[in-house]
Structures are given as C-alpha cells and as structure tokens.
Design a protein around this nucleic acid. Structure first.
Lengths: 138, 138
DNA sequence: CTTGACCCTAATGTTAACTTTAGGGTTTAT
DNA sequence: ATAAACCCTAAAGTTAACATTAGGGTCAAG
C-alpha cells in the first residue's frame, strides 16, 4: 500500500502514464525506485508532486519554470539561504503580478456579466475589451 | 498618424510582425484595411487588442480561449444578451478559480521567503515543496 | 496455461504557437 | 537610382508538451 506503480499514480493524479515517464525524463520527477521486475515504484509523496505540477501548469507556468520551483527543494541543500530566498521572492512577485492581472480581467468580466441584462435581445453593448479599456486595467 | 503599418504595430506591442499575421490567420485579429499597395493598415484600437492577447496569454489562456473572450465583442452584435452573459459568467468562474490557486501558491511562497532568514548559511530547511505539502495548498 | 491487464524502452507522431525561408514588390533616404 | 528598410504571400521549420506505436516482458484470474 505504500509504494505506487505507475498506473496507480496515473489514475490517482489523472495524468497519463506516458506523461509521468515524460516528466521523469524532463527531471520534473526524480527517478523512482524499481521493483525486481523493473517496474517503477513511487512513494506517496509523488502524488503531491504531480498534483503540484498540474496545478502550476494550469496557472500558466511552463515545465521549465515549474522545474525551478521544484529545485528550490533540491537546491536548498546546496545553496545559501540568501540565494533560495531570492528565487522565492522573484517567483512571489511574478505570482502577485499574475493575480493582479487576473483580478482586472475578473472585474471586467463581472461588470460585463452584470451590465448584461441576460434577456433575449441582441447584446450589442457587451464587450470585454471595452470593459478592460475603460479603466479596469491601467 | 491614425493608421498603423504592421511594423509600427509590431514595435509598439513588442510582438513580431509574423505573429501579427499569424493572429490574423487565426482570427484573433480582424482583417485590417489595406492601402493601395496592399499593406495592412491598422486602427489604433488594435494596439489594445494585441496587448490584451499578450496579457491573457501570459496568464495561461490559450489562443482558443482568448478568441472566445474576444468574441464576446463580435458575438454581442449577433447573439442574445442571455448567451453573452452565459459565456461571460463561465469565464468569470474560471478566472476566479485561477485566482484562488495563485493565491495559495502566493501564500506558500510568502511563508517560505519569510521563514528563510536570508543569511549566508546553507538553506537545508527551506523547501517550497514542504510548504506546498503542508496544507498551504489543499 | 493462456488471456487480459499491466509494465518496460525507444522511436515516431501530434498540436499549438510561433519563426524562418523563399521569392518578390515598395518606400525612403542618400 | 540604388541600397536599406519596409511590405506581401505561401510554405516549411521549430519548440514544448505531450500521445501513440512497435516490440517485447510480467502477473493475476480462471
């Protein structure tokens, strides 16, 4: 129950088996232990890692960037606290910018959906670009 | 001064000329007017459109999704307010989810950068994965 | 003891989003 | 009037992030 075969990992993370092997080749997942027959054996921990990758990806991080986030762990043992803190803070301000951008899109969409009466008539006045233009975004 | 040639549009949006033509082929930009010599002539408005595309893309929206957002404008003239409102609200809840995810990554990173003393010693205790594992993200 | 569901590697194929190339006109500055 | 800097189309090439295929072992159930 402790170790997972690749198919189990795939099923519980909803990621294809081939994708997991691909992540391994791309160094996003460490090479797992192998059973006597050559099968990959993953610890439970890997579940979290894979889910993290998928979520980060849905947020627009490339595998490259995700690798950098994950390397904060590995590198932590080899680099100074100062360096790690620097990387973390870079990513942090990056994330904060994204949040602000998303929030301005959010408010534009909200205004739009709000203005929109929702009735059966033609909706000539509804435009997300107009909402974004009119001050919602700088 | 009113109409832009493709090179000017490219320069002021920091997008390659070929990319602008690609967006046109992909229906992300309407086909612009042409000068007598066949050159594309863009109205100022296009600046906003291109910048919107680029920002949305940086947030992890695919060109497909961006097209849908932009079509809220075009479609508005052809569809009922009800339909437009529906699309807007779908996108809205999508955007709100993304914001929540980003915020949990934000707080994980902030905690990490905070705990990290920032000093010159080895940072074995700093692990973004640990933070992410420990409930910062569901 | 075989059939179906797994697992393996290595290689090739696919899709999105571009970029580059080829081949050719146009405009602008000298 | 010619070189440098633009513009055009059509087509082929590139990269990231997978998915699929080929060819082959492994294991649990009946």
């Amino acid at each position: 129950m402790s170790m997972l075969k690749i198919g189990q990992l795939a099923k519980s993370t909803n990621v294809a088996v081939a994708t997991l092997r691909y992540y391994e080749a791309q160094k996003l997942l460490q090479r797992p232990a192998r059973a006597a027959n050559g099968y990959r054996l993953y610890p439970q921990e890997t579940l979290t890692q894979v889910r993290f990758i998928k979520r980060a990806q849905a947020l627009g991080f490339s595998l490259q960037e995700i690798r950098e986030l994950l390397f904060l762990k590995v590198e932590a043992t080899r680099h100074s606290c100062h360096e790690v803190k620097q990387v973390a803070e870079d990513k942090l301000s990056n994330v904060r910018e994204r949040i602000l951008e998303l929030q301005s899109i959010e408010s534009a969409l909200a205004t739009l959906a709000n203005k929109c009466c929702g009735g059966p008539e033609m909706a000539a006045g509804c435009s997300i670009l107009r909402e974004l233009d009119e001050g919602a975004i700088k």
